[in-house]
């Protein structure tokens, strides 16, 4: 009993610094302007300003930004998974000339910072006449070296005997990828998908550069409009907006968390 209490105490102590920023975000989102900056930190809003949420929502066309963020993020992740799993399939299960060279080129691509590609990608999109479209937001990220690398490693770990057994049962080629490799690599696929979703949901710089039009712009640009450089930021509105912008990510994490635990357990039993 005492040991259990002690372990809970340790867990709670670890939880506080993790939750504090979220609490502060929620707290600030409810503060009227006059309570945002105070000499002594205020841990509870004296006059909760629920209206901040409405003000933040109408300050920018957030409904449209939400729709665009969902379309763009879902398209990127779907394309990345499709292309990465096919590439990883080829690199891990087929023998062909130049296979390891291609693999090392992909690994080398991991080292190149994404910023280096910005100008070249921008020019390409401009020449194709694709600026200000969903394609401009999705196409440069459709192929992921990181995803290919991760999945290739996961696929390579699947024993040869399984493939032979599957082939005997008439499951070969793409069916093998779909029915055997991907389900077996579910933790890796989910982990990669989650990282990709969060990365592209939060991306600010690229969407800002390639779009000029609210019709295709995404949520982080809406958040950016609350940030002032010359004076300061509307922290209470920014925090209110941050709550509804990050809510889908939090929700997704809680839903995915269950799968994570399950798939970890399953692989553990199998291993």
């Amino acid at each position: 009993m005492i040991r259990r209490c002690a372990s809970y105490a340790v867990l709670v102590a670890g939880l506080i610094p993790l939750l504090l920023p979220f609490y502060w975000m929620a707290l600030t989102s409810l503060k009227p302007k006059r309570e945002v900056f105070t000499a002594v930190p205020q841990w509870w809003p004296a006059h909760p300003a629920w209206d901040n949420y409405r003000s933040a929502w109408v300050a920018e066309p957030f409904a449209g930004f939400f729709f665009n963020s969902i379309v763009v993020t879902a398209s990127i992740v779907a394309l990345q998974l499709a292309l990465a799993s096919l590439a990883a399939f080829a690199l891990s299960r087929f023998e062909f000339r130049g296979r390891s060279l291609i693999f090392w080129i992909i690994v080398a691509a991991l080292i190149v910072p994404v910023q280096i590609t910005f100008i070249a990608n921008f020019m390409t999109l401009a020449h194709l006449g694709l600026l200000n479209t969903y394609a401009a937001l999705v196409a440069p990220y459709a192929a992921s070296a990181f995803g290919t690398f991760l999945l290739r490693q996961a696929f390579a770990a699947v024993p040869r005997q399984l493939e032979d057994a599957a082939r005997l049962d008439g499951c070969s080629g793409l069916a093998f990828l779909w029915h055997v490799l991907l389900p077996l690599s579910r933790p890796t696929v989910l982990a990669f998908a989650l990282v990709a979703v969060v990365t592209h949901w939060n991306d600010y710089f690229w969407p800002l550069i390639v779009t000029n039009n609210n019709a295709v712009r995404t949520l982080p640009i809406g958040l950016g409009m609350f940030v002032g450089q010359e004076v300061t930021t509307d922290w209470n509105l920014l925090m209110a907006a941050s709550i509804f912008v990050s809510a889908p990510m939090l929700l997704l994490f809680f839903l995915m968390q269950r799968y994570f635990v399950q798939s970890q357990l399953r692989t553990g039993i199998r291993g």
């Binding site: 002032g228 004076v231 300061t232």
Partner: peptide
């Protein structure tokens, strides 16, 4: 928008 405060609107 450099001052914040809904100037975009």
């Amino acid at each position: 928008v450099d001052l914040g405060g809904g100037l975009a609107n």
